[in-house]
Design a binder for these strands. Structure first.
Lengths: 113, 113
DNA sequence: AAAATAGTGAAGTATTCGCTTGACAATTAT
DNA sequence: ATAATTGTCAAGCGAATACTTCACTATTTT
């Protein structure tokens, strides 16, 4: 039951919750450059290995990061699945803000006739 | 000093923090359909007016929502500025996940030569 | 074999977060 | 004028969050 999530809404919730933390976004920024180990991430961010591990779990559950442990080092990289989902969410809401800056003004005029 | 923010990073932080809450995203979903008053939002979400007001402040500060009070009713609508910024962030990270699913595998092979 | 490196797990802590209640102000309806 | 509607402000509360430390395992290096 790892692949087919019964609730797409839950996936969106996890996704945005993961993106909501600045440290996790910094990790994504870093991983956007190249795959990196847990130690390097910790060093770069100035936090403990444990903290990085906790963030990684959240990032993996939201499919923003994939990791693989070979030997004693776990390597982390961007996972496209989460970003695809994010892009889809943006696309699904685009119509609403492409309506223009005066959507509010228009609405108020209509109500006021 | 409402338009030129000295720190674009702070704007990104506010943006993703705002998007991180499911109630606020539900508000955005609703406002994507049409501008709405605070009372209607509260009714729809099953929370108090006060709670909606608190969320609105965060959504306005991140430029995801604009509001205008005429008479005693405050009308809320989508603000394009925040969504533009979100889209920009996605675009700036796109290269990293368009590299493909095997970015991690490739990296591990290279290291292992 | 011993020491160093890389990561994991459990438990605790300080802060932030989302929400409520209760009191209040301002506009609109009767 | 009174009453009802719509929203705002201040304070407080319980839960969640992002960390840490300490103890431990597993792999590499010397």
């Amino acid at each position: 039951m790892s692949e087919s999530d019964p609730s797409p809404q839950a996936a969106i919730d996890r996704l945005f919750h993961a993106l909501g933390d600045p440290t996790r976004r910094a990790m994504l920024d870093r991983l956007s450059q190249a795959p990196t180990s847990v130690s390097r991430l910790a060093e770069h961010l100035g936090i403990t290995l444990t903290a990085v591990g906790q963030h990684l779990q959240i990032l993996e559950e939201s499919a923003l990061v994939r990791t693989e442990k070979t030997g004693r080092v776990r390597t982390c990289a961007i996972d496209s699945a989460g970003f695809d989902r994010l892009e889809r969410w943006v696309r699904d809401h685009r119509h609403a803000w492409e309506a223009g800056l005066d959507q509010l003004g228009q609405f108020l005029e209509e109500e006021n006739e």
